[in-house]
């Protein structure tokens, strides 16, 4: 799929200045912090701290706070991990650290 990326990735640059490592790691941490903030908001804020206020809003019979606590937070968790996985794939490619077999296919 991403053969062209692989072809262009060899970076002949001078003795590996490890600047890319810090950059990669920083981007990883930034993504992590954003996703974990969402994780905290849907579960602890919407499902626990503000549940009583949100329960005043009723959607399809569900008080909204209860919906977050018993349904919405779980859906969000699944999406968070998917987003993390896909973004990290992209980041790995960008920095040429994806694991590939001899033919360059993803492992």
């Amino acid at each position: 799929m991403t053969d062209s990326v692989r072809e262009s990735s060899p970076d002949p640059g001078p003795p590996p200045a490890n600047g890319w490592r810090q950059e990669y790691w920083k981007k990883n941490l930034r993504l992590m912090v954003v996703l974990l903030s969402i994780w905290f908001v849907v579960s602890f804020v919407c499902g626990i701290l503000l549940i009583e206020q949100l329960n005043n809003i009723v959607v399809f019979g569900f008080p909204l706070g209860l919906w977050f606590a018993q349904q919405g937070s779980i859906y969000t968790f699944i999406i968070l991990i998917l987003v993390y996985t896909l973004r990290m794939d992209r980041l790995d490619d960008e920095y040429g650290v994806a694991e590939r077999d001899g033919e360059g296919n993803r492992l």
Binding site: R6, P10, V97, R100
Partner: peptide, 11 residues
């Protein structure tokens, strides 16, 4: 912290 060594040689 890095899934694989940075690709220098592909073969």
């Amino acid at each position: 912290r890095y899934p694989a060594a940075r690709k220098q040689v592909t073969a």
